[in-house]
């Protein structure tokens, strides 16, 4: 089935992926390929997957989402899932599902702040390291 692909928005050093509505599996698989390719081709440092438009996440979709975030992380990109709706979050917890190893943020704004803070922290660590060297 040919589906519209989920757009990947480049914003400064970050990639933003807004997911709307229900995502069919094939779209999710395509997304993972697209995101990892964009990471490889560009110089992205952060990835935000915004799921504020998602009304339902079942265990399979949750796993796909986690895989997307973890594959980005393995490529050295900080991944944040943002905008999980309250009902979706509660449902996931009730089912015993978590997304371990993945940062989460209340909304897109917070996710951007989180990425910035992470980056500043990294820069500080790096600065201290260089300071030690000097």
């Amino acid at each position: 089935m040919q589906e519209a692909r989920i757009p990947i928005i480049g914003l400064y050093d970050d990639l933003i992926v807004p997911i709307q509505g229900a995502i069919a599996d094939d779209v999710m698989v395509a997304l993972q390929a697209d995101v990892t390719r964009r990471i490889q081709d560009g110089n992205a440092r952060g990835l935000i997957v915004d799921v504020s438009g998602v009304e339902t996440l079942d265990s399979f979709m949750t796993r796909n989402l986690r895989d997307l975030a973890l594959s980005a992380r393995l490529m050295g990109v900080t991944a944040v899932v943002s905008g999980l709706r309250p009902a979706v979050a509660i449902t996931l917890v009730e089912m015993g599902l978590e997304i371990p190893g993945v940062h989460t943020a209340l909304n897109l704004e917070r996710a951007l702040e989180l990425l910035r803070a992470t980056r500043e922290e990294e820069a500080r660590d790096l600065g201290e390291l260089e300071g030690d060297d000097a």
Partner: peptide
């Protein structure tokens, strides 16, 4: 996979008509 999405939508629709809470609608759809 598209049918899975349809099934999910149908369940939510029925749940909504039955006046389940938003949380319960989400649980049912899930």
């Amino acid at each position: 996979a598209r049918d899975v999405v349809d099934a999910c939508d149908l369940a939510r629709e029925v749940a909504r008509k039955l006046s389940f809470s938003l949380l319960d609608q989400t649980k049912i759809a899930t």
